[in-house]
């Protein structure tokens, strides 16, 4: 009898847990957004976070973007040559990067580099009572810890996406130079085919991704103590893993939804 009810109970329990988590995440994210009214006071912290999320991620973004562009150039060339359309390589590389790969890969690289680190940092602050200490000092921990990171990511994600796009296109061009003697038309085709809507769409995506990545990373770290299955260092480790996995999944889901609206 007990087994008969256990499966529906499990579904109910999971659904309720999910709804509760989404609600809590929503309130948490809105609180962080609301904290942005104190931007003047938070400005030094926003700059620190721009340095951490943006500047320190620049090397890895450039490296990944360059090789992504090269691979796109290589794959695109061998596909397009079958249709004698290798002249369209620049357009193929640019559109793929600007519309899709630029925002998504930038977001995924930033999840790995900054998101995991932010989640672990806030998680450790939680288990070592540093967040409680802020509360007792009557300093809003969400405003103090999350809002500057959110504002910094709103600035860094689109900028790094732009860098990714540009470096990726250069990588594609480098590939085309190695493969074809007609690499000169690479940029002229991009100029004639790439529309402003494509660029805007990519930035819209990167802006949405920044919100998703930063709120999920901070949320997972902030509520580390509520994870009943594990505590202490293991709890922080689980929160970090959870932040990375959830951010990646929600970025891809959001990517599909935004793309379907933009198309």
């Amino acid at each position: 009898m007990k087994n008969m009810f256990s499966f529906p109970a499990l579904i109910g329990e999971t659904s309720l847990g999910l709804v509760k988590n989404v609600g809590q995440w929503g309130v948490f994210s809105l609180s962080a957004l609301a904290g942005a009214v104190h931007i003047r006071q938070l400005f030094p912290k926003v700059l620190q976070n721009i340095h951490f999320i943006g500047f320190k991620s620049l090397n890895i973004i450039i490296l990944v973007a360059f090789f992504t562009g090269m691979v796109l150039g290589l794959q695109g060339y061998y596909t397009l040559i079958k249709f004698s359309a290798e002249g369209m390589l620049g357009v193929a590389v640019a559109l793929s990067l600007v519309r899709e790969l630029g925002p998504v890969l930038t977001a995924i690289m930033l999840i790995g580099r900054a998101g995991s680190s932010i989640s672990a940092e806030i998680g450790i602050m939680r288990i070592s009572e540093q967040i409680d200490a802020l509360t007792t000092m009557n300093i809003d921990p969400v405003r103090y810890l999350v809002t500057p990171k959110m504002l910094a990511s709103f600035i860094c994600f689109p900028l790094l996406t732009a860098v990714f796009d540009c470096v990726g296109i250069l990588g594609g061009y480098f590939s085309s130079m190695l493969l074809s003697s007609r690499s000169g038309i690479f940029f002229s085709k991009i100029q004639s085919s790439l529309l402003l809507e494509d660029v805007t769409g990519g930035f819209v995506k990167s802006f949405v991704f920044s919100f998703i990545v930063i709120t999920i990373s901070c949320y997972c770290g902030y509520f580390t103590h509520l994870n009943q299955a594990s505590a202490g260092a293991q709890g922080v480790s689980n929160s970090t893993t959870s932040a990375v996995v959830q951010s990646c999944v929600y970025v891809l889901i959001a990517d599909y939804i935004i793309t379907s609206f933009l198309m």
Binding site: I124, E129, D132, A133, T136, M137
Partner: peptide, 19 residues
């Protein structure tokens, strides 16, 4: 409640210093 918190200070057992 915020006004009450402004009147208080708390010293934690494990210090809770910002590392």
């Amino acid at each position: 409640f915020s006004a009450i918190k402004n009147r208080c200070s708390y010293m934690f057992q494990h210090n809770a210093l910002f590392d």
